[in-house]
Amino acid sequence: QEPLTASMLAAAPLKEQKQLLGERLYPLIQMLHPVVAGKITGMLLEIDNSELLHMLESPESLHAKVEEAVAVLQAHQAKE
């Protein structure tokens, strides 16, 4: 699969851009946290598209955001 570029993303209708980004993020997140991959992907998709594109190219920044989201989700679930 070739990398998702900003121009590819811009060519898609706005509504589909999040889905396109999600489709690329989901497998990467699933490798780290299979059980909550859908939820964590949804949480990350609230980040701006340009930053999400950068995260797809930089595993470190993606890992950092994923771990941040997982920590918040786990704290929330512990409270419930």
Binding site: E23, K39, L45
Partner: peptide, 20 residues
Amino acid sequence: KPFVPNVHAAEFVPSFLPKG
């Protein structure tokens, strides 16, 4: 903009996953 994880964000469902 700092990233504030939102636990109420909708769950993402990839189109390549079988439905249900």
